[in-house]
Simulated assay, not measured.
Amino acid sequence: MTSSLRLEKITPANVEAAIGVTIRPDQEHSVEPVAHSLAEAYARGDTAWPRLILDGDRVVGFLMAFLDIDWKGDGSREDVRSGLWRLNIAAAEQGKGYGRFAVESVAAEIRRRGGTRVFVTWHAGADGPEEFYLKLGFRPTGETSGDQPVGVLDLM
């Protein structure tokens, strides 16, 4: 991994590159394709934070954070959360530290906005990313979102 890693906002100039990020076929059941994520980002523009992950000028992945969502969804705003919503690292780029960079970047943005915790959900099972998130310090909350476990990383 080089020091030229950065995130870039999705724009008309790079949206095709974002859509072109594809994961390994055996992971496709674990995370939505980037095009699906971008549609959700459009529909939830007030809380979605989609970004390309670049190493120099080379696109290596895509992430989408959620910022200040009403977790209960009942309008009470009693449980407002931020975290990593989607992470797609290109198949040929996995295992090079780009996923860690993505999580650290989302954590930095949440911290910049005054947040103290990062939430994530993952596909459960032996072929899911649970081990990746646990190694980064996330701990299971005991909750689920749909059928996915919820994890939290304290930023303090």
Rank of each mutant, 00 (worst) to 15 (best):
G45R: 14
D46S: 15
D46A: 12
D46N: 13
T47K: 14
T47L: 12
A48S: 14
A48E: 00
A48N: 05
W49G: 03
P50A: 10
P50R: 07
L52A: 02
L52S: 02
L52H: 04
L52T: 01
I53N: 05
I53S: 08
L54G: 10
L54E: 13
D55W: 02
D55I: 01
D55R: 02
G56Q: 11
G56E: 10
G56D: 12
G56W: 10
D57G: 04
D57N: 12
D57M: 04
D57Y: 05
R58K: 15
R58Y: 07
R58P: 02
R58L: 08
V59W: 01
V59Q: 08
V60Y: 03
V60D: 08
V60S: 05
V60C: 09
V60H: 00
G61Y: 00
G61Q: 01
G61D: 02
F62K: 00
F62P: 03
F62Y: 15
F62E: 00
L63Y: 00
L63A: 05
L63S: 02
M64F: 05
M64C: 10
M64T: 04
M64P: 02
M64V: 08
M64W: 00
A65M: 09
A65K: 01
F66A: 12
F66I: 03
F66L: 12
L67H: 10
L67W: 06
L67T: 00
L67E: 04
D68F: 08
D68M: 09
I69Q: 09
I69P: 08
I69S: 07
D70C: 08
D70L: 06
D70I: 11
D70V: 09
D70G: 03
W71Y: 15
W71T: 08
W71D: 14
W71L: 11
G73Y: 11
G73H: 08
D74P: 06
D74V: 13
D74R: 10
D74S: 12
G75C: 06
G75T: 06
G75H: 07
G75P: 02
G75S: 10
S76C: 07
S76H: 05
S76I: 12
R77S: 11
R77W: 14
E78M: 10
E78T: 15
E78V: 13
D79A: 13
D79M: 13
D79F: 14
D79T: 14
D79V: 15
V80H: 05
R81S: 09
R81G: 07
R81D: 05
S82K: 01
S82P: 07
S82G: 06
G83M: 10
G83R: 03
L84Q: 04
L84K: 00
L84E: 08
W85K: 01
W85S: 10
R86A: 14
R86C: 08
R86E: 14
R86P: 05
L87D: 09
L87C: 03
L87R: 01
L87V: 08
N88C: 12
N88I: 01
I89L: 04
I89E: 04
A90M: 09
A90T: 10
A90Y: 05
A90R: 11
A91P: 13
A91T: 10
A91F: 06
A92Y: 03
A92D: 15
E93L: 01
E93G: 06
Q94V: 07
Q94T: 11
Q94I: 06
G95V: 09
K96F: 13
K96L: 13
